[in-house]
Design a protein around this nucleic acid. Structure first.
Lengths: 342, 342
DNA sequence: CCTATTTATGTTATCGCTATCATCGAAAGG
DNA sequence: CCTTTCGATGATAGCGATAACATAAATAGG
């Protein structure tokens, strides 16, 4: 907190204070603090000195009211605790770094209602663009986004009716690819661990992809264990694999909605003295750090979380600055990473 | 983006537009949109209808300029990808939820220079309070914080010269406690894995605590393996333990600066056919989800990351609202969680 | 040397909202 | 029934910056 030496004003100084001290107009101060505007060297130095002496910090709220540019980008992710999504957030921030745009980050805890609230809270700050996770929103949320008059990017998915622009991939296809890859290795009795709730859209799509791929291969697709609502934990994976083994002890390979549950399953199997992949194979989704490091190392799908964020932010800044015409759809890569667990 | 049905104005509506439509003054609209102000029921309904019809969303930048309250809280953490810190961020957001304050989150990548930039970027937004991680800042950063005239909370540490208020614990003491606990179990030949760089202050403090505790116990404290700059990865832990075993093959127990490196070490040991804890014991720091779930489950120190965030945010809102006089120092709990890895 | 252009600075008018004070009618109190 | 209080609303004036236009001085061009 400020310490106020008696008579002095405790108020944070304004641009006029700086201007007065430097003997110029406020406008000149404004220019001096902005890159690439014409201010003579001496004036600029005098102003900078005044700025330092007063400890002046530009008030961007005021600035953005007048310039009609807030310098904010909003991003809404399901969870900051999930490293897949925080990687995306990191990709966004990194891409934004040079543009001077600042990230307003919110997380929904996988709830569309919460997302709706967040959308409104964010729009109140008049972001210049907004990045969402997934393509499911409440009708009101959707309407607000459409009316906001700013570019919107949906990520981590390929919505059938995008609001505006998309940077994502098909979670279903990715899972299908994984099934096919494993089937090609000779596995036949597949199990799946992952939620079914409408809440986790990407989870449901992965599961649908699992079923779809097996049906196409004429293999049974009924070994499905679901657990509660997201966020999915490692521990849930451990419980689920127990469940799976009780119901279908001869399961050869278990695919999980995420590396986190896959890891929980893997550890639980080891705890029970089962060998992975000899007794049972396990694969995850997301290529989290843990998948590359655990023992045995985990087969999974890499989905370029960081790149999703980065590309979304780039597309957004393109749209904002009106530089070129950004593609409406960017499909991001995913690829199977075969490791020791299968 | 907005679709503009020819003649219509594409501009986002303002409060005056709503006022005109509802047949009241802008001030009344402002009141109607704010909780606990006197507006008659009929008027409020009329206004809300106008709000919905126009799709009006309050402009908080303009509002905060006038009310001199931005509704922002800034928080700066080293990394969003580290679940310890993202837990803290979650604690902050959750505690803020009811207050209507919004979080401006930034991450430093463990760089104080970056922290300084972030502090300035944040202060430009005129947050009503700011939460920092750790007690090391650049002189300029420190000065800016002192002059900002807002409550400042340093967390995750116990700085010797706090700027304002503190919510944290001594990383050194926590590590000492872990050493003592394990020494009491009979371990004698301790090794430590973790960085030394000034960059990771908390890491250095933990290491100092390790050395300090061993010296007090008259045990050798020279088995130290350091690795590069943070963020610390699992893989680094794996490499470090190899290094440790080469130099001091008879090490009984390895303490790591974080559960993540501890996990990497644990997996690497298993990969090499060593049994944990029989051949070598391993302990981490932070009580990440992985520590409770891996096999064998990992001994570690729980440090209530979420609680740090929560308490910091509570203290901050107290200071902002001037309700009571918040304590300058809150020492948060830490405790050893003994599990199977030691 | 004079006009055309550029550079450096100032003036003014908002940006969209809310604090503050003012107003007016209705309910409450004696 | 008259004063007092309160509740509902409006009018006005900024908040602290910047856009836009204006002006004066400096430089360039012929």
């Amino acid at each position: 907190m400020t310490n106020i030496p008696d008579g002095k004003m405790p108020e944070t100084p304004t641009m006029s204070d700086v201007a007065r001290r430097a003997g110029v107009s406020a406008m000149t101060v404004s220019r001096a603090l902005k890159e690439g505007s014409h201010v003579s060297k001496e004036t600029r130095e005098r102003i900078m000195q005044a700025v330092n002496e007063l400890g002046y910090v530009l008030d961007q709220s005021a600035g953005s009211l007048s310039s009609r540019r807030t310098g904010f980008i909003a991003a809404i992710i399901p969870s900051i605790n999930n490293s897949n999504f925080s990687d995306t957030a990191r990709g966004i921030t990194d891409a934004l770094e040079e543009t001077g745009l600042q990230l307003l980050l919110g997380y929904t805890n996988y709830s569309v209602e919460r997302e709706e609230e967040l959308i409104e809270a964010m729009l109140r700050r008049r972001p210049e663009g907004i990045i969402l996770t997934g393509g499911s929103h409440t009708p009101k949320g959707r309407r607000m986004l459409e009316q906001a008059g700013i570019p919107v990017i949906e990520t981590w998915d390929r919505p059938s009716q995008p609001i505006d622009k998309v940077v994502g991939f098909s979670n279903g296809e990715a899972m299908e690819l994984l099934v096919e890859t494993l089937a090609a290795k000779g596995y036949r009795r597949f199990g799946y661990i992952g939620g079914t709730t409408a809440r986790d859209t990407r989870g449901s799509q992965r599961r649908a992809g699992f079923v779809c791929a097996l049906e196409r291969l004429n293999l049974p697709a009924d070994r499905l264990i679901s657990f509660g609502v997201p966020p999915i934990s490692m521990e849930q994976g451990a419980q689920a694999v127990v469940n799976m083994l009780e119901r279908w002890p001869d399961t050869q390979v278990v695919l999980c909605v995420s590396d986190l549950s896959a890891f929980g399953a893997l550890m639980e199997c080891q705890r029970r003295g089962m060998k992975v992949p000899e007794d049972i194979a396990i694969a995850g989704f997301g290529d989290y750090e843990i998948a590359a490091c655990c023992h045995p190392r985990m087969t999974t799908i890499n989905v370029d979380c960081y790149g999703i964020g980065r590309q979304a932010a780039l597309k957004l800044t393109q749209a904002i600055q009106g530089v070129g015409k950004p593609e409406a759809l960017t499909v991001t890569d995913f690829r199977v990473i075969e490791r020791e667990s299968t």
